[in-house]
């Protein structure tokens, strides 16, 4: 049986999620014996328009060229999987959707007319159908290996949608909200990271995006009670997954509260 063909494509991003492949260590060499990598520019493999079984997408759509490229990639891929916050929820750069991007570009670049970009930064789902989304900023090698393993066996990967709070309990981490009054986003954030921040004694900052059934209103009230003003509560929701509707709504509701 021929090896399954895989591609890794990059759009607007920090390259950090591709590292979930490149940081596998010797497992990376094992992976290359199991799959046929047809495109992975950072690893030196170029075949952007080749048909593949699975295309992994890092990064968000932010230029007119990006729009054309993602459509070609979709047409050539049996399965399309987004990896990380940029591809899945816009990433930090999507914060410009909330502001006057033209004025921002003008503030950074002396000649903004040379800069080609779309008005809005969008996750991949906004442009083409996506078969599976891996959340996290960044995704880690464990998530990638689990997803590749499932897909190669024809199984839908497990969608980890639990809250970070659940992971804290499993890890027996002390709750930083209850014990120290820290403004933790764990109650609304999906797990996958292993509750890294609370286990380091700091508040979760929601880099894995919204969990299932997140009660953002109750968390907002709690954060307010801890002394945060509305603008700061809104900022808590406007991190790497700011384009998720549930976080955007929460930010809108809270931003003007004193």
């Amino acid at each position: 049986m021929p090896k399954p063909k895989v591609a890794v494509h990059k759009f607007s991003s920090c390259d950090g999620c591709q590292l979930a492949f490149l940081d596998m260590g010797e497992d990376l060499l094992t992976l290359t014996t199991q799959v046929d990598i047809r495109h992975f520019a950072e690893a030196g493999i170029l075949g952007e328009d080749e048909p593949v079984d699975i295309a992994f997408i890092e990064g968000s759509i932010s230029t007119p060229e990006d729009e054309h490229r993602i459509k070609r990639i979709r047409a050539n891929a049996t399965l399309l999987v987004t990896i990380g916050a940029c591809a899945t929820a816009g990433g930090l750069q999507a914060l410009r959707n909330l502001a006057d991007a033209k004025a921002w570009t003008a503030a950074v670049y002396a000649s903004p007319e040379y800069i080609s970009s779309l008005d809005k930064v969008q996750p991949i789902r906004a442009r083409v159908p996506v078969d599976f989304e891996l959340w996290g900023c960044p995704v880690n090698s464990r998530q990638i290996v689990a997803a590749v393993g499932s897909l190669l066996n024809g199984v839908v990967p497990v969608d980890e949608r639990d809250k970070v709070c659940m992971e804290c309990k499993r890890q027996q981490a002390v709750c930083v909200v209850v014990s120290e009054g820290k403004p933790c986003m764990g109650p609304v954030t999906r797990t996958g990271c292993g509750a890294l921040c609370p286990r380091f004694g700091r508040a979760c900052y929601a880099c894995y995006g919204p969990a299932e059934n997140p009660n953002t209103e109750a968390l907002g009230v709690r954060l307010h009670g801890l002394g945060l003003i509305g603008r700061e509560i809104a900022q808590q929701f406007l991190g790497t997954t700011n384009q998720t509707p549930v976080f955007l709504d929460a930010a809108q509701r809270w931003k003007d509260t004193p």
Binding site: S12, S62, T63, D66, L92, Q93, L95, R96, A99, A101, W104, T105, A107, V108, Y109, I115, S117, Y205, R231, Q235, G239
Partner: peptide
């Protein structure tokens, strides 16, 4: 593509800047 980080850091506090 330009990501305009220097703009959306405005209004944020130190820990956000470190994480962003």
């Amino acid at each position: 593509p330009p990501r305009l980080y220097e703009q959306f850091l405005i209004g944020r506090h130190a820990q956000d800047v470190i994480d962003m």
